[in-house]
Design a binder for these strands. Structure first.
Lengths: 67, 67
DNA sequence: ATCAAATGTAAAGCGTGCTATACTTTTGGT
DNA sequence: ACCAAAAGTATAGCACGCTTTACATTTGAT
C-alpha cells in the first residue's frame, strides 16, 4: 500500500525519530512504512492520521489489485 | 476497536455470508469483527468501507485508550 | 574533507489477523 | 412444534505487523 508519510513528515519538518515518538512506534516501523515494506495495522493507520490531522484515506492509498 | 458493521449490514439487509462474499473474506472474519474479537487489517478496513461506500472513520471507531 | 545526524538494511522473535473445518445455538416462518 | 437458515463458538495453523538490536550508508553543515 502506498502512503504519503514521507511527504507529510517533511512538510512538518520532522525526522523519522520524532515522528516515531509522536506516533508511538519504533523508528524501524516508520522507515518500513515510508519505504512501503508493509501495511500498517489499522491502529497504526489511525495514529498516523491523527499525528498529521488527516483522514486515513488522505494518507494511505488503497489499491485493490495488490491484495 | 468498535465498529458499525452489524448495523450497516442490517441496513443493507445482507446476511453475514453475503457480506463476507462481497468483502472477500470468510464468514468467520465477519462474525469476529461484528463481535469485536479483533481489529481488521487496514486492507480489510478499506474493503469493508468500500462495501458500504463510507469512510473508514465512519465505520471503525478508534479508541486511544485501548492500545 | 570531516563528523554527526539522519536514513537505511538485516534478522530473530512475538503477537495477532485471518482461514478452514467442524460443530452448536438461535431465529423465524409455517 | 418443526425445520432450515442464520448466527455463534472453538481451535489449529499460517502469514505478517511491529519490536529490538546491531551495524552500514547517506546527507549536509562547517
Amino acid at each position: 500500500m502506498e502512503n504519503r508519510i514521507r511527504e507529510l513528515r517533511e512538510e512538518y519538518k520532522m525526522t523519522q525519530q520524532e515522528l516515531a515518538k509522536k506516533v508511538g512506534v519504533s523508528r524501524q516501523t516508520i522507515i518500513s512504512l515510508e519505504n512501503g515494506r508493509y501495511n500498517p495495522s489499522i491502529n497504526l493507520a489511525f495514529k498516523v492520521s491523527k499525528a498529521f490531522d488527516k483522514l486515513i484515506e488522505d494518507i494511505f492509498i488503497y489499491n485493490e489489485e495488490e491484495d
